[in-house]
Design a protein around this nucleic acid. Structure first.
Length: 291
DNA sequence: AAGTCCCTCAACCGCTCACTG
DNA sequence: TCAGTGAGCGGTTGAGGGACT
């Protein structure tokens, strides 16, 4: 038996969202909170698929989304995390809470792939090309091993879903950059009055606490200022807040260190505090060539 | 000015995962 | 244990706009 469609395809509107639709969606979420997407089209006048509503919210309307150019720091983060995690864009996005996985994915495919390809060509031209590749492959292999180890350990323990999107939505005080001013106002109101009937399993209280413990933002996170900082506080890295909260949870509980990620997180903090280069592991050479 | 090409990014599609009864 | 269902994720597409000829 085939999987039924998520919604009735007949009469479902496709294509770009209009400001009016945005307002309807935001108003609904303001009242009911994000989640239970299935009910959104039925309880509103939106002629949209539930998936479309969710994507519109998570990729565009959700508060805390930073738009505009990626900073050097963000680029390095993405490159580094992509080397460690592969194309797990959602996981990578949880380290860059102001960016959506879609944005990161697009940015990678459009900009960074080209840069890395260019770099690779350059590297081939220099004599130490093989050495760099071997180092990179070794580091990636080590990262994969660590992740596999963590994931296999995790399977033995209880699982908790990672809802980084909603952690962000409940914590950041920024507004999204929309062309529709009224939507922005709606969102501002929503930020002031968090939804009381949030149906998500992750409460705003816990997510706020957890989020704050992982990421520390400048107050103006709506700003596109390149100096915005995202520092990772490893001292407060709790199982609830980690990107790999399930993985990390199991690790912490079983006292098995996820050394590679921890090392990187620590180095990230050091790099920030000492104004040193973020990338000082496998990609330090390549990053230097890129930027 | 008009036509074409290229780039960007919002949105869609299809798959997998997680949860529930 | 298993089927049904909702939600999330990653790959891909196509419309729109800017750059170029």
């Amino acid at each position: 038996m085939g999987r039924p469609p998520c919604c009735d395809k007949i009469g479902v509107k496709k294509g770009p969202w209009t400001p009016e639709e945005d307002i309807i969606l935001v108003s609904y979420i303001q009242e009911h909170g994000p989640g239970n997407w299935r009910s959104v089209p039925t309880n509103t006048d939106l002629l949209r698929c539930s998936k479309s509503c969710r994507l519109r919210w998570t990729n565009y309307l959700r508060p805390g989304i930073k738009r505009g150019n990626f900073t050097d720091h963000e680029e390095k983060m993405i490159i580094h995390l992509q080397a460690l995690l592969g194309n797990r864009w959602a996981a990578i996005a949880s380290y860059l809470p102001q960016r959506t996985d879609n944005d990161i994915k697009n940015y990678w495919n459009i900009h960074l792939k080209k840069k890395l390809k260019k770099l690779q060509i350059n590297e081939e031209e220099v004599s130490n090309k093989g050495q760099w590749e071997r180092r990179l492959q070794t580091d990636i292999h080590m990262a994969k091993q660590a992740l596999c180890e963590a994931l296999s350990l995790d399977k033995a323990t209880s699982k908790q879903p990672c809802n980084s999107y909603h952690e962000v939505s409940g914590s950041c005080s920024s507004i999204y950059a929309s062309s529709a001013e009224n939507i922005s106002k709606l969102l501002q109101n929503w930020m002031k009055i968090p939804p009381s009937s949030n149906s998500e399993t992750n409460s705003s209280a816990t997510t706020q606490e957890g989020f704050d413990s992982l990421f520390t933002f400048n107050s103006n996170c709506h700003s596109s200022d390149a100096s915005q900082s995202v520092s990772v506080d490893t001292a407060n890295l709790t199982p609830e807040t980690s990107l790999f909260q399930d993985e990390t949870k199991s690790i912490l509980e079983t006292q098995v260190p996820l050394t590679l990620l921890e090392k990187w997180l620590f180095e990230d903090v050091v790099a920030h505090e000492g104004q040193e280069d973020l990338i000082n592991m496998s990609l330090e050479d390549s990053a230097a060539g890129l930027f």
